[in-house]
Nucleic acid binder design. Structure first.
Lengths: 212, 212
DNA sequence: TTAGATACATACACGTATGTTTGTAAACAC
DNA sequence: GTGTTTACAAACATACGTGTATGTATCTAA
């Protein structure tokens, strides 16, 4: 095959990742063949092995294309909680839900991660990364919730670590169930869904014991 | 191999399902081999193919062992909402969380379903069943929430279909995230988690539009 | 202008999962 | 007690995915 220029090669890489999204989504990650991906991109496995070590490398690269921007968004939120942390969290949560609902790449990759990926010992590195990422996310959420608590937006007796867990669970759960359902416009209801959850935090009963 | 009695054969079947739980959990459903399952049970693939048509049949049988009892529990709740539907829903939700936290078989199978199974066109029958089951669950939750609404436990402006979606999402999300985290005693916090969510429903803002 | 590196395509060797078929010893019907 | 069916084990044929090795045409740098 003819050698392409650097830019053409980079474009080939993107096309392979696009193809991986489609194939992973259609067949599931483990049933997807490197040949499937190559063919979908109009290439051969030679191109795949040139740009990536193996299927796992493709998978992580594909995830990074959507997760890195979202992580940056949360980082900014933590860096400056602002005068209304709870309201800002509401809007950020709603914004994430809207992204899932409206950006097709985000939709597809979330569907792949939530429904078409088997985490097991074989992909231990990926699991460890994911666990670290999730833990960091919870810590950040807890930090923002504590800021809200200091401003009196949340009762003092609320355990912010547990509340962060609940918030994170709620968001993931809403994304997961909506992706499975698709019967209403998530973007329209995103604000209400988030506001209802925070109303619960504001009127939460006292905790039975400390978390952890 | 020697022929076994009917009871012995039924026990063999159970052992195969136990083995399937372990192997699916360890390797993921699609990476799990029928030979893996047979060996784990101390048998051969001959036994597997005698009791089940293929891997999909084993998977559904394994799921049924835990999902059927839980579905029966929800059915009973719908048949008689009682004088305090919201309180009863709180206790039922907490009970499910406790089951996930304390019953090892429930824990394992939920982990398999949530983290170690790839839903795709290849297993379309399983997906269709699951979608129907989930839809039925949401309808039942909505029914109970409407009963609570008639009793004044939830504001009249709340869309019960959307609230059922939120509740279901919250439960699944909590189960999923706790299974991934495992850093606190879920059974201890189950009541607080559910009560906090229902506090949100009771203080929910008016909806922006109709769901669906 | 040419030597080497690049960006793939093609071909091969290997392991391995699957479905099926055949074998077989014990249980059960009679 | 004999024949048949049951509940598996063992062996076989087939297919398929992976990794790697090799081929090659083009780009690029000197």
């Amino acid at each position: 095959m003819a050698r392409r220029t650097k830019e053409q090669a980079a474009e080939t890489r993107e096309q392979l990742l696009d193809a991986a999204e489609r194939v992973f989504h259609a067949k599931g990650v483990s049933r997807a063949t490197l040949d499937d991906i190559a063919r979908d991109a109009g290439l051969t496995r030679g191109a795949v092995y040139w740009h990536f070590d193996n299927k796992t490398a493709i998978f992580t690269a594909m995830c990074d294309r959507v997760s890195l921007p979202m992580q940056a968004m949360l980082d900014a939120q933590v860096a400056d909680p602002g005068p209304d942390p709870l309201g800002q969290l509401t809007r950020d949560g709603a914004r994430i839900l809207c992204l899932v609902a409206n950006d097709s790449r985000t939709t597809r990759v979330f569907e792949i991660i939530l429904f078409k990926t088997e985490l097991c010992e074989v992909v231990a590195e990926v699991m460890a990364e994911e666990a670290e990422r999730a833990a960091r996310c919870r810590r950040q959420l807890s930090t923002v919730l504590q800021a809200a608590q200091r401003l009196g937006q949340i009762p003092a007796h609320v355990n912010c670590d547990l509340a962060a867990f609940a918030l994170n669970s709620y968001l993931i759960g809403c994304i997961r169930e909506w992706l499975e359902l698709r019967e209403f416009n998530l973007a329209d209801q995103a604000e209400w869904l988030m506001q209802t959850f925070y109303a619960g935090l504001q009127h939460a009963p006292p905790p039975p014991a400390k978390v952890e």
